[in-house]
């Protein structure tokens, strides 16, 4: 613990930490420009389903509340449904392509990457609207090619046929 006794060392550590953070701010500034805008306003009165400031801070609270209602009680309102969020917020870029959650231009990823908050929603849930997913899912792809595709996406390397 001798190192902590010297104030000089602490100062150096602080500066290094600060410098390390600079690229992150930059990345955010750059990428936020590319993030597609939502499709439309939710209603004439509000842009999102709740005031934007509240959504930024509390969207997960709404999602959590709604998720149990949907799964257990079968309530299918769209106001706080994750699918509805995705449908509105994930829009194509100029080339007509939809970002995946693994891309930093994905609406959710853009913020979650920056704040380093890991979410597991998209391990199961669709990260793009259905039309976009149907486009990438080619039912004619052969089995092994499809497996390979998925593995390339996940960077798992070669697959051995079973």
């Amino acid at each position: 613990m001798r190192i902590l006794k010297s104030k000089w060392h602490i100062l150096v550590c602080l500066i290094i930490t600060l410098i390390a953070y600079v690229p992150m701010f930059n990345a955010f500034a750059e990428s936020s420009a590319d993030i597609p805008k939502p499709k439309s306003n939710y209603s004439d009165e509000t842009r999102c389903v709740e005031p934007v400031a509240i959504m930024r801070k509390q969207h997960f609270v709404y999602l959590l509340e709604h998720r149990d209602k949907t799964v257990i009680e079968g309530i299918r309102t769209t106001q706080y449904s994750l699918n509805a969020c995705i449908d509105c917020h994930i829009t194509p870029n100029a080339e007509g392509e939809f970002a995946r959650y693994s891309d930093d231009t994905h609406f959710c990823a853009s913020c979650h990457q920056f704040t380093a908050v890991n979410i597991d929603c998209f391990q199961c849930h669709a990260d793009r609207p259905e039309e976009a997913i149907r486009k990438t899912r080619n039912p004619n792809t052969t089995v092994t090619a499809h497996t390979q595709e998925i593995h390339e996406y996940l960077q798992l390397g070669e697959t051995q046929p079973h």
């Binding site: 699918n83 391990q123 199961c124 669709a126 997913i133 990438t136 998925i150 996940l154």
Partner: peptide, 25 residues
């Protein structure tokens, strides 16, 4: 048994969970 991608919005499913017929809920 494996990580998935391109799941359909109405049928969320993913690695490490058990699943079965949902009677098209």
């Amino acid at each position: 048994h494996e990580p998935l991608q391109d799941q359909l919005p109405h049928s969320p499913r993913g690695k490490g969970c058990v699943e079965s017929c949902t009677l098209c809920v």
